[in-house]
Simulated assay, not measured.
Amino acid sequence: MGRVVYCKGAFVPEGDAHLSIFDRGFLFGDAVYEVTAVLGGQMIDNDAHLDRFERSLAALAIPLPVPRAEIERIQAELIVQNNLAEGTVYMQVSRGEADRDFLYPEGLSANLVAFTQARKLADTPSQKNGIAVDLAADLRWQRRDIKTAMLLGQVLLKHQARANGFGDVWMVEDGLVTEGSSSTAFIVTADGRVVTRPNSHVALPGCTRKAVLRLCDSHGLRLEERPFSPAEAQGAAEAFLTSASSFVTPVIRIGDVTIADGKPGPMTRQLQAYYLEAARGPRPASTCRA
């Protein structure tokens, strides 16, 4: 049997899940999505993901199709029905279905779909050995803080980076790094400060980023929220990226420049350990979990 997915109010085999060709997520990318990591059968940072999910939907005036508690129940049920120990839960809400028109009618019923993907998230080769990231111009729209399904820019850049032998790509605008194609960019300065951009419209407010910032605070690590240039990144003592599906991943080369000695640095290793310890720790009893 294939996966069980959630589509328009029901748990069904993936082959039986269908949306209309007039769904605005399909026609216009008029949709918001979230991805929550699962480790040991438990969701990680899910409250932060649901907070961002609600904020992104509100920014596009798309109503939450079911109460938040029901979304948590759907996530948990998908984990159970698919026996998911490690991987991700994906959710997407589109504005709904209507004949193709840029001007959408009022009162559409939002469509919710969700599914799991089994994959290894912890202790991956990339986390152990580090990756190289390419640099490319950021060609996306101006509201990158909203997690929409309009990802063609990232798709094209990531595909080109992979073709050129890189593991990911960091995007650049006005001479400064905005973020990775599906991650938050960090550097560590020579005097041990962890640096990442502050939240704004130019980059997605990462949930794993938020967790790492919290870990820096709780462990007394010095943190600076400010932009940095590709040149500063290439001259940094360390670099790493964060995302829900890659956790804390060392970056050992940026463009054609090797970072320090070309090996994951000690601060990155500390943060990897802190993050996994927190992710594998006890979950709040008040949060719905599988």
Score class of each variant (00 low, 15 high):
residue 95 R to S: 09
residue 208 T to F: 02
residue 159 H to F: 12
residue 89 V to M: 07
residue 219 H to D: 12
residue 116 T to V: 10
residue 132 A to Y: 02
residue 117 Q to Y: 05
residue 110 A to M: 04
residue 127 Q to P: 03
residue 156 L to A: 14
residue 196 T to E: 09
residue 99 D to G: 11
residue 140 R to C: 00
residue 163 A to G: 13
residue 149 A to V: 11
residue 194 V to E: 08
residue 119 R to G: 03
residue 181 S to A: 13
residue 150 M to P: 08
residue 176 L to F: 10
residue 106 E to L: 15
residue 104 Y to H: 15
residue 234 Q to L: 07
residue 185 A to K: 03
residue 155 V to L: 11
residue 118 A to Q: 14
residue 151 L to P: 02
residue 152 L to S: 09
residue 204 L to R: 00
residue 164 N to L: 13
residue 159 H to N: 13
residue 189 T to V: 04
residue 127 Q to N: 09
residue 208 T to S: 11
residue 148 T to L: 08
residue 213 L to H: 10
residue 165 G to S: 06
residue 141 W to E: 11
residue 219 H to A: 08
residue 114 A to S: 10
residue 93 V to C: 04
residue 89 V to D: 05
residue 113 V to E: 04
residue 189 T to M: 02
residue 182 S to T: 08
residue 166 F to N: 03
residue 145 D to K: 07
residue 208 T to P: 05
residue 201 H to D: 12
residue 138 D to L: 02
residue 131 I to K: 06
residue 177 V to N: 00
residue 127 Q to Y: 04
residue 160 Q to G: 14
residue 169 V to A: 04
residue 207 C to M: 13
residue 217 D to W: 02
residue 175 G to K: 07
residue 141 W to Q: 06
residue 148 T to D: 09
residue 224 E to H: 12
residue 203 A to E: 06
residue 170 W to T: 00
residue 116 T to D: 00
residue 104 Y to E: 11
residue 122 A to T: 14
residue 163 A to D: 15
residue 187 I to C: 05
residue 184 T to Q: 01
residue 220 G to A: 05
residue 134 D to K: 09
residue 170 W to Q: 00
residue 183 S to Y: 11
residue 196 T to R: 07
residue 131 I to Q: 02
residue 159 H to V: 14
residue 114 A to D: 02
residue 138 D to W: 09
residue 216 C to K: 06
residue 217 D to A: 13
residue 223 L to N: 05
residue 147 K to D: 04
residue 165 G to R: 06
residue 176 L to R: 12
residue 108 L to Q: 05
residue 219 H to T: 05
residue 223 L to Y: 05
residue 186 F to P: 00
residue 169 V to F: 01
residue 122 A to I: 13
residue 195 V to R: 11
residue 99 D to Y: 12
residue 211 A to N: 07
residue 112 L to C: 03
residue 207 C to T: 15
residue 166 F to T: 01
residue 146 I to E: 04
residue 97 E to T: 14
residue 223 L to W: 04
residue 133 V to M: 09
residue 200 S to G: 14
residue 105 P to H: 14
residue 136 A to R: 14
residue 135 L to T: 06
residue 153 G to V: 09
residue 99 D to S: 14
residue 178 T to A: 01
residue 147 K to S: 06
residue 217 D to C: 03
residue 205 P to G: 10
residue 90 Y to C: 05
residue 213 L to D: 02
residue 212 V to I: 10
residue 204 L to E: 00
residue 135 L to G: 08
residue 184 T to C: 11
residue 157 L to T: 13
residue 149 A to C: 15
residue 130 G to H: 09
residue 113 V to H: 02
